[in-house]
Every structure is written in C-alpha cells, then in structure tokens.
Design a protein around this nucleic acid. Structure first.
Lengths: 207, 207
DNA sequence: GTCTATACGCCGATAGAC
DNA sequence: GTCTATCGGCGTATAGAC
C-alpha cells in the first residue's frame, strides 16, 4: 500500500531486534527527505542518520549510490501504482468508473502517503533520475491513457484527442492535489475529491 | 517582453563592442541552463562559459552567488508578468476577457520564450530559492486570484471557492503548457490554445 | 552488516595581477 | 571588468577493522 518497500508482507523471522530490513528503512527515510527538501538538498549523511545509521558507509551495502536510491523508490512506486490500476480496471468496465477509481486512489494516497504523491507530483524526477522513462511513458500511465482512448471509442468521452482529454482531466486532478500537498489548499485532499472529480469529468464527458 | 533583463530598451552607448551588459548575458545564459538542466545540475563554470566568460570570477562582480542569479531571474520574470497582467486588466472589464488575455499571454510565452515558462512551470523553485515567496503569493498571482473573485461576485463564474476555480482553470491551462514544454504534446502551444481555453473556461463559467 | 577513518573531486567562492 | 591561480569545504564514495 505504501508502495515503497517492494515486499509488503510482514517479516517472517526476526533475525535481529531492529534493522531486519535496513534497506526499507533507507528507502523510507530517503522518500521522506527527498519529498520534503528535494534530492539535491538531501545528503547521504542525512539519509543514513534518518535510517538509524551512523554513517553513509552502510548505505552502500544496499545501494550503488545516491541516485540508485531514488531510482529504486521510483520503480517501486510505479510498480505499486501499476498493480493498483490493473486492479481498478479489472473491477470496473466503464471508463468513467475506471477513472473514478484512479481518482479515488490518488486522493487517498495524498492523505495517507503524501510523501509518495509529492515524489510523483512535485519533484522534478528527470533532474536526478536521468535514465528514468518519463512518467508519461511508464506502464501505469500508458494504461491510464488507454482508458481515455477506450472512453472515446465507446462514446463515453467527447471525441477529442485522447492526449488532450488526459491532459485536461489530470490537469484538474493533479493541480488540486498539488495545492493540497503544498498547503495552499489547507484541508485534507478528501475534502476536495468529489468536486474535483465532477469538474474534471464533466469537462471531457460526452453530453 | 523576454522579461529577463530588467531594462528592455536598447543600449544608448556602445562602450565596448561586446559585453556591454554582461549582467544580462549571465542572466540569459543562466535562464537557459537552469530551465534545461535544472539549478543543481548547472555549475557556475557552465554559466560563465555560456556568457562568454572564461571563468566564474567575473560572475561574482555582478551577483553575490549562484542563488542570487536565480533570485534575480525570478523577480524579473514576476515583475514582467505583473506588468503584463496590469495591462490586461486595464484593457478588459469582464473576468472572462481578463482570463482570456492571460491565457493568450501564457501560450504566447510558451512558444516565444519557452525557457521562461519552463522556469515558472516545471522547475521546483523553492528548492533553490528558499526565500522566494511561493508563486501563489506573488503579486501577479494574487491579481489573478482577484479576477476569479470578481468573476464569481459578478455572477460570471460559478459560485464555488475562488481558490478551486483558480486551481481547476489553471490546472488545465498549465498542464497543457507543461506537456508542450516537455514535448509530450508535439505541436506549438498555439495549436492547443483555443481548445484548452474552452475546456478550462467552460469548467468554471456560470451557465 | 555496521562501524571508524579517510580519500578524492567538484564546485562555489576569493585574492590579486593586469 | 576580466583574467590566472588557488583555497576551502562539503558530499560522495571507499578501505578495512570489528
């Protein structure tokens, strides 16, 4: 659910009282720091300390370098998103219902795991993960785009360029969430959800 | 117009054949590099070279440090935007016309001065200009917000929270522009302008 | 697997000649 | 105002003991 550590099941054994999975600790600490201060304003020393380590050395046991931490975070988040979207598409037929499910997910994540959403929505990922495919080309986003295409084909969504439908729709959704994450909108994302959904959906629905 | 160098009039004297205004050269070079590679991936050495200087030393004649260059860029851009918005508000009465004018401006800037728009829309400014007031609180954006408030009061815009009207409207506009700037939408911004305006405006107009 | 200690490079920034 | 030369420091990354 939090989508940061790859294996979300509880640990079976308790080898050592603490730091059974230092790798996850590092990822969680890095996610928090990156999303709050940015990648370049976060030093490995800070990440190490926040992970309960004295030095940066131990970090290199788990990651090749600082950038690899960010890459791992990115792929874990995308993987988790991808799974959730598959789930949503399986459970819903109509494009409207699928999009609604995705919006629900994003608003929920904004309240429950703001660091993840900040990582996705406010950080400029290609500045520090050069090899990362653009968010637009990642599997989950390709799937979302297919929803728009099906919606148009099925006559549920207005007959405009699917890319533009996507841009408009998530322009509204993401900007609302971004303002929540930045504190400009000062209530929980949940508060704004149904209204934002209506505004975004009515903009592209065929009437 | 380009909004980068404060004094936009032509130079009156030609003291030296080149580099009469090295400061402007530095600002222009920095704008380009920052908007393309990000603040932290750009070294002062690169800025100096791109400005036609051999070393970083001369840069310090004009700016206290690297961050000051970014700050100056930011205030110059906001100042210019501020003036343009005053102009637009003076020439148009209705909120719809004022917003239309601002949208025209932003689309035009995206085609004519993409570096400026990238600086505003895709860079994470507070990562390297900590003292900068958030974009939302800057004079030009406060004025834009007033347009939404007047539009609601005048019954031109649906009676919703003016902050949300703002968020929805510019969610659509800015996301469209962002995709143009990133190349995801591969035609000139101009191409998408009227459609984006309609989508954004119809979302908030009172019908 | 985590520690101490240390190496190394890059980059921001300064001093001073011209 | 631009240059050459150089400093200092931070942050990444490594070697090796425990």
């Amino acid at each position: 659910m939090t989508a940061v550590n790859k294996n979300m099941e509880q640990k079976k054994e308790e080898d050592t009282p603490v730091n059974t999975e230092a790798k996850d600790d590092i990822l969680l600490a890095a996610l928090k720091l990156f999303s709050q201060k940015g990648f370049f304003n976060t030093s490995l020393t800070e990440i190490a300390h926040a992970s309960g380590l004295k030095n940066t050395s131990a970090v290199y046991l788990h990651f090749k370098n600082k950038q690899a931490i960010a890459s791992q975070l990115y792929t874990n988040i995308l993987d988790s998103l991808n799974i959730s979207i598959d789930d949503i598409r399986r459970k819903n037929q109509k494009s409207s219902a699928q999009l609604r499910g995705i919006v629900d997910l994003l608003f929920q994540l904004t309240d429950d795991a703001p660091d993840i959403m900040r990582f996705l929505l406010v950080l400029k990922l290609d500045e520090f993960i050069p090899e990362a495919m653009s968010l637009q080309q990642s599997p989950p986003f390709v799937k979302v785009h297919k929803i728009f295409q099906s919606g148009i084909k099925a006559g549920e969504i207005r007959n405009i360029d699917s890319m533009l439908a996507n841009a408009y729709f998530f322009g509204v959704i993401n900007n609302t969430l971004r303002l929540v994450l930045l504190g400009t909108l000062d209530k929980a994302a949940d508060t704004y959800q149904s209204q934002a959904w209506l505004a975004a959906w009515n903009m592209i629905v065929k009437k």
